[in-house]
Computed example of a mutant assay.
Amino acid sequence: MKDEMNNVQMLLFQDDGVIPNHPSLPVLLYKGTWATDFSRAETMLNRNGWGNSWINGVFDYHHYHSNAHEVLAVVSGFVQLILGGEKGQKVYLQTGDVVVLPAGTGHKRLEASPDFRIAGAYPAGMSYNTRTGEPGERPKVLREIQDVPIPDTDPVYGKEGPLLELWNQNKT
């Protein structure tokens, strides 16, 4: 487990008044995780208990999911995202990188290579919504974010992964 933990970067974002982000769970960034066989990323996510999956891209506007955590695994190419809202942090992801976004975490595509493809999935195949920070949705989404449970598995490592340790020690 120690080697897996060394490959994981944690990023924590505050509510910026538009994008709520998660109040206690950090974004987890796994660099170069599946670099040798990333064509099977969606299958691997599903095998590790993350379903309702898809392969596509990332929207070019700020959005988040208030009722589900999300994993994004770069299948090909590269992308630069901004996480956490307009004043958040830019991250560069390439083939083999995985990012786990706790419910409420804003994300937006800034640029991507022409061959960019990403696999997305949700714990236990949860259904997800898409929110953009509209003022009227705020009270409801803040409750929804708090109600999303910690997943039973890590999307990359399954039952033994760093997500379980890191998120269980950070939950409120």
Rank of each mutant, 00 (worst) to 15 (best):
A124I: 01
V75M: 05
P151K: 06
T130D: 02
H22W: 10
M5D: 13
L72S: 01
N46D: 08
L101A: 04
R109D: 10
V100C: 14
K108R: 14
G133I: 10
D15C: 12
G88Q: 08
A103M: 03
A124N: 14
T95E: 10
L81F: 11
V141Q: 11
P149Y: 05
D37Y: 12
T43Y: 03
N46P: 01
L29M: 11
S24P: 03
G49D: 12
L12G: 06
K171W: 05
E134F: 06
G133L: 12
F38Q: 07
L110W: 01
V99H: 11
D115A: 08
V99F: 02
P151E: 09
G161W: 11
G96A: 03
A121L: 15
Y92C: 00
V98F: 09
S113V: 08
G120F: 05
N67F: 03
S127C: 00
Q14R: 15
M1N: 13
E165M: 01
T36N: 15
V18T: 15
Y157P: 08
G104T: 11
N67T: 05
E165Q: 06
D97W: 09
L25Y: 00
T153P: 10
A35G: 07
K87Y: 00
L81D: 02
N7M: 13
V91D: 00
P123R: 12
Y157G: 04
N56D: 08
I82Y: 01
F59E: 08
T43R: 12
N6L: 13
P26A: 05
N170Q: 09
Y61C: 01
S127V: 07
H65C: 06
T172Q: 14
P155M: 14
E111L: 14
E144W: 14
L12T: 07
G104N: 06
L142Y: 07
R131K: 15
A112G: 01
G120D: 10
V91K: 04
E111F: 06
A73M: 10
N46E: 09
G133W: 15
P162T: 12
L142A: 08
Y64E: 03
I82D: 02
E137H: 04
I118W: 00
T36P: 00
S113R: 01
T33I: 08
V27S: 08
G49W: 09
Q94Y: 03
G96M: 07
A73K: 04
Y157E: 14
Y64Q: 13
A112R: 14
N52Q: 13
D152M: 09
P20H: 09
V75H: 08
A124T: 11
L29W: 07
K87F: 00
R40F: 09
G136W: 14
V79P: 02
V8F: 09
E144R: 04
W54S: 14
G85K: 06
N56R: 15
L81P: 03
K90F: 04
L142W: 00
V99P: 02
V100N: 07
K90G: 01
T153R: 15
P162S: 14
Q89V: 11
L12P: 01
H63D: 04
G49N: 07
V18F: 03
A112W: 02
S76N: 15
W167P: 12
D37Q: 14
T132F: 05
H63Y: 05
G136Y: 13
T130Q: 14
A68I: 00
Y61K: 07
V156Q: 06
G49Q: 10
Y92V: 07
